[in-house]
Amino acid sequence: TTYKLILNGKTLKGETTTEAVDAETAERVFKEYAKKNGVDGEWTYDDATKTFTVTE
């Protein structure tokens, strides 16, 4: 399944996708990605669109 991440950081904005077996796995991948890019904020997930959003 393809999951999407929307980054709404103070200095970094953008989108990325990952293939994962479930939302929990995708969330771990995306949180590591955000951490590596210095983005830390509020996380939300929309199951209907398989989209995570992190907003600083």
Rank of each mutant, 00 (worst) to 15 (best):
V21G: 12
K10S: 12
T53Y: 11
A48L: 13
F30C: 02
T44R: 09
T18C: 09
E32D: 10
D40M: 13
K35V: 12
T51D: 01
K36A: 10
E27Q: 12
W43E: 00
T16I: 15
A34S: 05
K31M: 09
V29C: 06
E27P: 00
T44A: 11
Y3V: 01
T55K: 06
K10W: 09
F30Q: 00
I6A: 03
E24F: 13
E56M: 07
D46K: 04
A48P: 09
V21H: 12
T55E: 07
R28W: 08
T44L: 10
N37Y: 14
E15N: 07
D46T: 05
T16D: 04
G9P: 03
T16Y: 15
G38D: 07
D46F: 05
A23D: 06
K31E: 04
V39Y: 06
Y45W: 03
G14P: 04
T53F: 08
R28L: 12
T18R: 05
Y45N: 01
A34D: 00
T11Q: 10
W43D: 00
T17A: 08
F30H: 01
K10P: 08
G38Y: 05
T49K: 07
K36R: 14
K31D: 02
E15H: 11
E24P: 09
V54K: 01
T44H: 12
K10N: 08
T49M: 06
A20S: 07
R28E: 08
L12C: 09
T44E: 15
N37K: 14
R28S: 11
D46S: 07
T16N: 05
E24G: 10
K31A: 05
E19H: 10
A34E: 01
E24Q: 14
Y3S: 00
N8Y: 14
T53H: 07
T11M: 15
A20K: 03
T53E: 05
D40P: 04
T2P: 06
E24L: 12
K50V: 03
T18N: 04
Y33D: 02
E56H: 09
F30L: 04
E19N: 14
L12E: 06
G14M: 14
F52Y: 07
T11D: 12
T2Q: 10
K4P: 00
R28P: 03
A23M: 11
T53W: 09
A26I: 02
K50W: 07
T55Y: 09
F30K: 00
F30I: 01
F52H: 02
K36P: 01
D40I: 14
K10D: 07
K10F: 15
T55F: 08
V29T: 11
T18V: 13
D47S: 11
K50P: 00
T11C: 10
T25V: 10
F52P: 00
E32L: 13
T49W: 04
E56T: 07
K50N: 06
N8T: 10
F30S: 00
K10Y: 10
K13N: 09
G14W: 15
G38T: 04
D46N: 10
T18S: 05
D46A: 04
I6K: 08
E24M: 14
D46V: 06
T1H: 15
G38P: 02
L7R: 02
G38A: 07
K4I: 11
T51C: 05
G9R: 04
L7W: 13
F30P: 00
A20M: 03
D46Y: 05
E27D: 05
Y45K: 01
Y3Q: 00
K10A: 14
V29A: 12
G38R: 09
R28G: 07
L5N: 00
G41P: 01
T25A: 15
T17H: 12
K13E: 06
T55N: 09
E19L: 10
E56F: 10
T18P: 01
E24N: 09
D46R: 03
F30E: 00
K4F: 14
K35Y: 13
D40E: 15
V21E: 13
Y33V: 05
E42N: 10
T1C: 06
L7F: 12
A20T: 06
E42Q: 13
N37A: 15
D47F: 11
R28I: 09
A48C: 07
A34N: 03
A23K: 09
A48N: 12
E32I: 09
T18Q: 06
T11L: 15
A23Y: 15
T18W: 09
E32P: 02
G9N: 04
G38E: 06
E56I: 08
A26K: 00
E27C: 09
L7E: 02
F30V: 02
N37D: 03
T11E: 11
V21Q: 12
E32T: 10
K36Y: 11
W43K: 00
A26E: 00
K4N: 06
A23P: 15
D22Q: 04
A20W: 02
D22N: 15
K31H: 09
T25K: 07
K31Q: 08
N8I: 12
